[in-house]
Write a protein that binds this DNA or RNA. Sequence first.
RNA 1: GGUCCGGUAGCUCAGUUGAAUAGAGCAACAGCCUUCUAAGCUGUGGGUCAUUGGUUUGAAUCCAAUCCGGAUCACCA
Length: 599
Amino acid sequence: MSVAQQIKKVTAKAITSLYNIELPQESILINATKPEFEGDYTIVLFAFVKQLKKNPEQLGNELGEYLVKENSELFTSFNVIKGFLNLTVSNNYWLHFLSTNYNNINFGIKEKTNAKVMVEYSSPNTNKPLHLGHLRNNFLGWSIAEILKANGNAIVKTCVVNDRGIHICKSMIAWKLFGNNETPETTHTKGDHLVGGFYVKFNDAYKKEIEEIINTGKTKEQAEKEAPIMLAAQQMLVDWEAGKPDVIELWKQMNNWVYKGFDETYKKIGSNFDKIYYESNTYLLGKNLVKQGLDKNVFYKKDDGSVWIDLTKDGLDEKVVQRKDGTSVYITQDIGLAEQRQKEYNAQQSIYVVGDEQNYHFKVLKLICKKLGLPSADGIYHLSYGMVELPTGKMKSREGTVVDADDLVAEMINIAKHKTEELGKVKDFAEDELTELYNTIGLGALKFFLLRVDPKKKMIFNPEESIDFHGFTGPFIQYTHARIKSILRKAMVNGQWSIENNSPLTIQHSLLPLEKQLAVQLEIFPAIIEEAATEHDPSKLAIYIFNIAQTFNSFYSQHSISNAENEEKKLLRLQLATLTAQILKAGMSLLGINVPERM
RNA sequence: GGUCCGGUAGCUCAGUUGAAUAGAGCAACAGCCUUCUAAGCUGUGGGUCAUUGGUUUGAAUCCAAUCCGGAUCACCA
C-alpha cells in the first residue's frame, strides 16, 4: 500500500477514535507538501472542520499528535500551518521502500485480471499515406494499450482499415487516366505514396474540370456534379460493389501497394495490431440490426423507405441508419462491427482512438447500441483526441498540405544522428548500434512530443521549428537513463556493487532533501500508472517521468553516488539510482519509447 | 441557430473532484565541465489565469452572462 493510502487510512481511524465520527477515506484530502514547508504529505483540514466543529489549528494539533503517537513507525513529526497538517514520514519508511523495491522490475505493474479491453487505433484510409495526425493516433493507441496492460487488463489491439469507398476510387481513376501503368517498382516509390499521389492528381484534375464547366456558364454546384472525372469515380464505386472483375483487380493491386507501404511505416514506428478488420468485409454488417431495430420499435421507416432513429429526447437529432435505396450508412456499419467484435472477443471495454471531430458520431453510436440492447454498448469508450494542426490551419491531404509521417520520422532520426555526432560520445559504437541509437532518439523525441500533452487538446505543429531535444523532451529522459546506467556499470565489480558492508540500510540520520524528494516521487509510480489508465491519458505519465528525470539530475549534480560520504550513503544512492533508471525505462516503455544504455 | 470543446508567461503546455505565494520547458540574460555522460545543473527577468458578476472561510478551478477561436449538427466516411 502506498504512503498516501496509508495516511488516509490512519487519518480516518484517528478521527473516529478522537471524535467518534466515521469519515470515508475518499473525503480525506491529502497532497504532497509544498517544498517551502516542512513535511512530506499534507492533510487539508478545511474539508472537515465544519463537521467536527473545531477550528483548524486545534484540530490539526490534536490530529497530528495522535497520528505521530499511534503510528510512530510511519511518522516522525508534524506541524500545523493555517488549515494544513504537514506530516513528516519516517526515514525508515523510505529506506525500507527503496531496499525492497529498487530491484523489482515489476514495480507499479499489476497482476493480470480477467478484464479484457479492445483498443482500436490508427484506422487509415487506403488512398493516401499516413500523416502526422495518424502518428498522434498511433502513439496514443499504442500507449493506452500498454498502460491498460500494466493495470492488469488483457488487450486486443485492433485496426479498422478503410479500404473501400469513393476515396479509393478517386485514386484508382486517376491512376487509370494518368498512371501510364506506373508501379512502386517502376517508380521506386513507396506504395502508399504512389497511390496518395494519384489522389492528389484526381483532385487537381477535378478542380480543372469544374473551372472549365463553370466557364460554360453553369453554377459551381452543377459543375461539381457533372465533372466527368467525378462521374467516373462514382461509376467505379458502383462497379466495385457489383464486383466487376477488372475494377476489383485494380482495387486489390493498389491496396496491396498501400499495405506494403503501411507495413514499412508501422514497423519503423513500432506499431502493430492483434487483429485487423477490413471495411470491405464489414461494411455490410449491421443490416440485420436495422431489421431488429425496426421490430423493437427503436427505429422507424419513413415513406420513402429510409430508416431512422429519433434521438431528440436525448438531446440529439434524428439520424438516418439506412438509406432509401437499402444501403447502409457509416454508423450502421459501426454498430454492426461493434456487435461482431463483441461476439469474437467479448471485451468488457472497447476503446476507439478517434479524433474529436467524431465526438457526435460516437455519442450517437453508443446511444443506438444501448437502445438496441447490445451487450457491447456500455463498454464503448471514445478516446477522443484533438487534431494536429499547422500554423496555417488544418492539414488537407486533398491539397497536399500534410506533414507526411515517413518524412517526419526520417527527419527526426536524421536530427538525432547529427546531434549525436556533434557530441561525439559514442564513437566506439558499431554501425548497427549507431543506427539503432538514432532511431531510438529520433522516435523518442517525436513520440514524447506528441504524447506529453493532454490527448483532448488540439495541438499545433510548426514544421519550421524542429522538435526539441532539450528540456521537457524524450531525449532528456533517455539521456538521464543512459547517465544512470553508466554510473551503475562503473559501480559494479564482478557482478556486485563494490560496497564494503552490504548489509541492509540502518542509517538513522536524515535523508538529504534531494534524496528524500526523489524517493517520495519514485514511490508514487504505481499511482501514476493507475491515474493514466483511468483518465486514458498518457501525458500524465510523460509529465511524471520528466519530473523524475529532473529531480534525479538535480540530485546528481549535487551528490556523488560512487564517492558518497560513506558506504551506507553509497548503497542508498545506488538503490535510488537503480530504481530511478528502472522507472524511467518502464515509464517510457508505456509510452512506446525505448531508452538507450548509452548515448 | 442547437450541442460540445478550448482561451493560463513572448512561444509550447501543466495545474480545473475548490486549498498555502499559479508551475514547467523553450526563448532571453548571468553563472557552472582537472571530479560518476554539460542532450545536464544553478540563478534572474517574465502573469488582468479572455471579460464581468455570483457562490464560498478560500475560485485559474464551481455557477451565470459576455467576448474570441474551433468542432459538429449530411440518405459523406
